[in-house]
């Protein structure tokens, strides 16, 4: 299947010091692609670079057929869910989802409200549409964040730790939603996570990053990596064990 996201020889980091180098991968359309790795390995930094919030130190990110990281006054071509959901606190969930619709479509208010409510219904939050973020749980915030990211029907969704900090039932519901988005809507999903059950349930392909190695140490289907990778760091990650002393 044709890839919609192509990353070539990317180097990311803060200042001039690279955290990760020579990052290259392709993400096929309609797949769930995970960026894995331990805490502090640069997953979120890589994600910020992919969505254009941070300049790469080297290399390039190419979105095939849907333009690059958006910096001009054109509608954003991808949706992003931040780790904390990043909803506007003084706006209701409905107003949060309406924000991109009012900005980037010619829909009259009643039609935009219909679409925003449909997005919230999709994530099971239509009955909480008029509540403020502070009045809903962490899982609901994450789901509302996904509804907002989905508002403009983006072909790619970037999700930063979508199920982190959620109870297993809520996390499973979110995983189901991610799979539905990919399989039914054909949305390509790039997610950053270190939640093993979620990764195994949702992800088609993944790359694993390692801070000490400064780049990718494994790539493939998560289940295959868990069962067959000879790399002790990959095995330690998937089997929740500590690394043997080097």
């Amino acid at each position: 299947m044709a890839s919609v996201l192509s990353v070539r020889d990317l180097a990311v980091g803060y200042g001039k010091e690279p955290l990760l180098e020579e990052i290259s991968f392709e993400v096929p359309r309609g797949e769930v692609f995970a960026i894995l790795g331990g805490s502090g390995c640069g997953k979120s930094t890589l994600l910020r670079t992919l969505v254009g919030l941070q300049e790469p130190l080297a290399g390039r990110v190419h979105f095939r057929g849907i333009g690059g990281p958006d910096k001009a006054m054109t509608p954003p071509r991808f949706g992003v869910l931040f780790q904390s959901a990043a909803l506007l606190g003084s706006w209701t969930l409905l107003q949060n989802v309406l924000l991109p619709l009012r900005k980037w479509t010619d829909l009259p208010l009643d039609a935009a409200t219909v679409v925003a409510l449909a997005r919230l219904r999709l994530v099971g939050l239509d009955q909480a549409a008029h509540q403020l973020p502070a009045e809903v749980s962490g899982g609901m915030k994450k789901r509302a964040g996904i509804a907002r990211a989905l508002a403009l029907d983006p072909p790619i969704l970037f999700l930063d730790e979508p199920s982190a900090g959620l109870d297993p039932v809520t996390a499973a519901g979110l995983d189901e939603l991610i799979v539905t988005l990919a399989r039914t809507l054909g949305v390509t999903i790039v997610l950053v996570s270190h939640e093993l059950p979620s990764i195994l349930r949702t992800t088609d392909q993944c790359i694993m990053l390692d801070r000490a190695a400064g780049g990718i140490i494994a790539r493939g289907a998560p289940r295959e990596l868990a069962e067959r990778s000879p790399d002790p760091r990959v095995q330690a990650f998937f089997h929740r064990t500590t690394l043997p002393p080097s």
Partner: peptide
Amino acid sequence: GEVGRMLALYDCARSGSCAPVEPP
């Protein structure tokens, strides 16, 4: 096909309620 799946996904009856959501 895809059109049918999309209409089914956004059918409010699927989530059990098509009642309008009114602000307080």
